[in-house]
Design a protein around this nucleic acid. Structure first.
Lengths: 152, 152
DNA sequence: CCTTGAGTTGAAGTGTGCTTCAACTCCGAG
DNA sequence: CTCGGAGTTGAAGCACACTTCAACTCAAGG
């Protein structure tokens, strides 16, 4: 036990992420695996950290595509250090702060509206395009230009 | 101008919601419309408020299905009063509080991890199943039992 | 050697929240 | 009456994040 590499089942068990999801992540280039002679995946233990980062990032509200970009910015030659991971986490922190701030604003506005009961589209600060709070939703939103968006 | 009812184009323009989305909402039972002799939709002005509520609720992170349930709880006979709307908004407020709280916790944990750079699945408070912070994501998640979840 | 559980692939399905399309009708101005 | 913009429908498409399936191979114990 405790060998150098992990099978997909082991990585799945340890990370709590379904094997099918891990294969999906690999297709998207988020994680990598060596192959045995029989074409089975063998994961380096450092991949555990990548998977952890992926799941945490998703909780922050980052798309897999953006997570991939972030992971691509890790040093390619050497194994990432704690500092490398910390730098990535820090960039998410700003997003998280912004999300928390906007939700707080929404709550305050909602409180105001609970007071007045208006829910008026024009009057209310609540319904304010250009503020574009939550572009978290899924789905095809090709109509929205989304040019004035937040930080890169 | 300023007639009793609105066409779908007018409601779309006033609410900032695409006409196709309004038809979709109607299919889901979130809004309603009378019909002219020629089968065109005519919206009562109170529908504006429903649309506003829908969009605000989405920002809070509520699914259309749940929004529908909430809207169904409005008094059916009379036109909803400001108090009726306020009651609905208030129920979302608790969700919003919870979301903000969880995101705050995630941020604190992330700060801790920026310090230690660990991102370890087991050690870290960050990666903690049972906490199940963000079930906001889309997609088919049939695998997750999700029984121990939060408040109703 | 045989069996069995774990792994492999590509293709298709799921759920949410819409948009887009084609083909058609309605309605008001001129 | 004619024209064009606005409206109608159902069906299909899109984007994301996966899961599920079928059909197959691998690997390790008995």
């Amino acid at each position: 036990m405790h060998e150098a590499t992990l099978t997909i089942g082991q990585l799945s068990a340890r990370s709590g992420v379904a094997a099918s999801a891990l294969r999906y992540y690999e297709r998207l280039g988020l994680i990598r695996a060596e192959r045995t002679g029989g074409n089975q995946r063998r994961y380096a233990r450092t991949e555990l950290r990548r998977v952890a980062f992926i799941r945490i990032s998703q909780q922050v509200g980052v798309s897999l595509e953006e997570i991939r970009e972030a992971l691509d910015s890790l040093p390619s030659g050497r194994t990432p250090t704690p500092d490398d991971w910390a730098a990535l986490s820090k960039s998410w922190r700003d997003r998280l702060d912004e999300r928390i701030r906007l939700l707080g604003k929404l709550r305050d506005d909602l409180d105001g509206c609970i007071g007045c009961g208006c829910l008026s589209l024009q009057r209310c600060t609540l319904y304010n395009p250009g503020d574009a709070l939550a572009a978290e939703g899924p789905g095809a939103r090709l109509m929205l230009p989304r040019e004035g968006s937040g930080a890169a």
